[in-house]
Design a protein around this nucleic acid. Sequence first.
DNA 1: CTATGGTCTCCCCCAAGGGGAGAGTCAAGT
DNA 2: ACTTGACTCTCCCCTTGGGGGAGACCATAG
Lengths: 285, 285
Amino acid sequence: MAMYTIGQFSRITGLSIKTIRLYHEKGLLRPALVDEFTNYRYFNDHNVDTARAIAYLRELQFPLAEVQEILSEFREDTEVLPFFEKQQKLIQARINQLNQAATSLDGVIRREKEVLTMLRQLESDIREKEIGDQTIIGVRWKGKYSETGKWIGQAARQSGRSIRGAPFNLYYDCEYKEEDADIESCFPVSGLTEKHHQKARVLPGGRCLSLIHKGPYEQIGLSYQRLFEYLQKKGYRAQTPSREIYLKGPGIIFRGNPKNYLTEIQIMIAPQNGGQDERQDGRQD
Amino acid sequence: MAMYTIGQFSRITGLSIKTIRLYHEKGLLRPALVDEFTNYRYFNDHNVDTARAIAYLRELQFPLAEVQEILSEFREDTEVLPFFEKQQKLIQARINQLNQAATSLDGVIRREKEVLTMLRQLESDIREKEIGDQTIIGVRWKGKYSETGKWIGQAARQSGRSIRGAPFNLYYDCEYKEEDADIESCFPVSGLTEKHHQKARVLPGGRCLSLIHKGPYEQIGLSYQRLFEYLQKKGYRAQTPSREIYLKGPGIIFRGNPKNYLTEIQIMIAPQNGGQDERQDGRQD
DNA sequence: CTATGGTCTCCCCCAAGGGGAGAGTCAAGT
DNA sequence: ACTTGACTCTCCCCTTGGGGGAGACCATAG
């Protein structure tokens, strides 16, 4: 019967010497012989089998204590079935937890990347553009502008994992109101589950004026002023609700510097004249 | 500005007192005030924000050291993007590892459950039954019966994650040979990838005699003898190759007790005479 | 003034090993 | 027989993210 020193045994089994000694100490792997004078460990082929079994169970993420229990109390694979099933549940739970983290990370990364490309191609000028229809979930409320954060949070909870872009507000008032403004806080969504589906609706696209406001929200009045001037100069007719998209605001981790906040203001333009498809107002809910 | 004792702060943030002290010690969470005489910690609302950020990053599985680095060196979410991306890769790796374990566990559980049902409905009697076509991957070899283990391992490696049942041998010799037997060691497979596809082939089904042999392989000769007697009595003609299905042999963890090994022997029966579809018996089990 | 409950620091514990120090051992070459 | 270099031994400390508990202060209400 071949006997191996711990180094040879380590090379055979792929376990580190430290690990082998640990398994010995914990009673998982008893060397075939321990020299009673030198304390040198010597292993045989049966030990190799045991080591392989341990390595296999460790791959299956069993804790050492459980490995020992299995190895010491059973002699047949079938008897270990309950352990396997317990372990399977445990691993599924861990996978779910990690998947949740991965999903969150994914969302964060996507959002921050969008912000970065936004920042790069930023020109703080009024543009006319076409925007498409969007499926959204929103929360309608009345109050002061500064309460927006709370309601965005509300909308985020309603949308759960379906959020597909930056939050925005819809302003249903035609004019600026300090108090008691009529606002809907929304998220664009997609891939909704059944029960979320009824809370969502489609926000129609169309032609709009767009201006990206850079800086704190307190100064957003100036950007609105520029937009209204432009509207008047071109003779366009504005449609409510107007939209304020919070491309970059207080972050998830940091509040950030308000000087770098980015908010896109979109004012939908009513079709010019005559056209029978004259929608004055997108209210549907 | 509201100030909270550590207990209140713990209730607000959901972090345990121990955890808060740890974060303080590691420099992640500096209390707004530490009484210089009593060493009591007092926290304010800004601390609540920080604690929330820490909890969020911990949910994303960031280690504390990284959380501290992020919190101490950055002020904007976008700057943290590289950390997020690194973390995403790390989490994916962990998920992959766990998924591998889960897949292995799944296979083991399925196999052992099959063995258990086998054991329950075991009657060690000769039966005639129809078996269906099977897609298999096999390794053909010549040598001694006892080398089977090695070649089954070979076949397992070839089949990878597509294995769908117990391993078996095909015996191409008409008679029992001690040495230099002509054998193919196989696994039933399904869900093959492209590159595995060409190694697989279909093993045709048909009518066969089946006997489940219980006990060590060394005694399998007796079971063969019973089968051959039955064949002769019925006047059936046997077809090669015959099959030996290792329902329960040495396990993955334990070698197990050879007295409990289960091996199903299947001998295909050649169609009787003339009639190309002559079923004599409705048994289909 | 005391009782009760909060809080402090300090120390030990978990899992699954890794790193290294200092001492002892083995086998081969000289 | 001696040396040398490679192994191996035990013992201790370190990691992560906290948990448990001891013994000593602290705060506040009755």
